[in-house]
Design a protein around this nucleic acid. Structure first.
Length: 300
DNA sequence: CAAAATTCCTGACTGC
DNA sequence: TGCAGTCAGGAATTTT
């Protein structure tokens, strides 16, 4: 399940060889992947014949700027993969829903068994029109996050991206104290912080020594600083190891290579196993319909 | 207004 | 062996 570290791994890989290349054609074999567009043809027309200027990321979204001023947004959902191929002779994996062919040769395929992923082309808002940026993102200081939100209105609602936007612990404190939501709900709410999903929320909370159900406004200053630090530390480490690939081997980078950060997971998917810190068994609990893993002794 | 439940979907796994 | 049932989860949508 691609979260920020996995999406960033894909972004870095694509940025290496996609920038400057021109999309010759797009073949769609499952319309659901472009469900935001009225027809698949609408999607194709906006892309074909245009070069890719940059490959960015905001939260879990990939944002490819095209030379016609539009942006191709790709969200991998639960099981989406972007895979390079030499050409049409390369065997297509099952559930290949879209194939981009480049003028200079080579292909990029969008593969997604569970079809929660999607792609769409975002038309830039007219000059002078004001895009409503999420209040949390507005707190950020520098980075490209605000620029992407202004160019891609569909992403303007996203909260702080831990890397594209930057936020000090004091501003983070203001966000946490403004609500009484359980911590895990805050971390996984894309409108507050963009990019964290079920796996990294659990890992970050363990890193900060905090329980998932602590009301966000109940944290002391020290705890807020621990959480603020854990967010960047855990995500940075995960990116360093190319993200997490679980036993289902669903996440791979565009070259088909899995990530290796799963070997450092402290709690996720470790129900009943000994905590690496205190040897107590890790507990699994369902929180808002999702599995939550934590150490009852190390997290409070 | 916010929070919880529902929906979309397929593959892996469980129990009989 | 096969089949029905369950689970997994991001995010938009619906319900409470």
């Amino acid at each position: 399940m691609p979260e920020l570290p996995e999406v960033e791994t894909v972004r870095a890989s694509l940025a290496r060889d996609l920038v400057g290349r021109k999309v010759k054609s797009v073949v769609l074999t499952n319309g659901r992947v472009v469900r935001r567009h009225k027809t698949a043809k609408d999607f194709r027309t906006l892309i074909e014949g245009h070069a890719i200027k940059s490959v960015d990321r905001l939260g879990k979204n990939l944002v490819l700027a095209l030379d016609n001023g539009t942006h191709l947004v790709i969200h991998l959902g639960m099981s989406g993969q972007l895979l390079r191929a030499q050409g049409p002779k390369d065997p297509k994996p099952k559930h290949t829903h879209a194939v981009f062919t480049f003028s200079q040769g080579g292909e990029l395929r969008f593969v997604d068994p569970r079809t929660f992923g999607e792609m769409y082309v975002s038309i830039p808002p007219p000059e002078g029109s004001e895009v409503e940026i999420s209040k949390f993102a507005r707190l950020s200081i520098g980075g490209d996050g605000l620029g992407i939100r202004k160019a891609v209105p569909e992403l303007a609602h996203l909260g702080i991206d831990p890397f594209e936007d930057q936020i000090g612990w004091d501003r983070f404190a203001a966000i946490l104290r403004s609500r009484s939501t359980p911590l895990k709900a805050v971390l996984t709410d894309q409108d507050i912080i963009a990019g964290i999903g079920n796996i990294y929320a659990d890992e970050i909370l363990f890193g900060a020594g905090l329980r998932f159900d602590r009301p966000s406004e109940s944290l002391s200053t020290i705890e807020i600083r621990r959480l603020h630090r854990a967010i960047s530390e855990i995500l940075t480490e995960a990116i360093k190891y190319g993200g997490s690939t679980l036993d289902d081997e669903q996440f791979v980078d565009p070259d088909g290579k899995p990530g290796t950060y799963q070997q450092f997971h402290q709690v996720y998917n470790r129900e009943g196993q000994a905590c690496y810190q205190c040897r107590q068994p890790i507990v699994r609990e369902v929180f808002r319909g999702r599995s939550t893993f934590y150490c009852p002794k190390c997290q409070s």
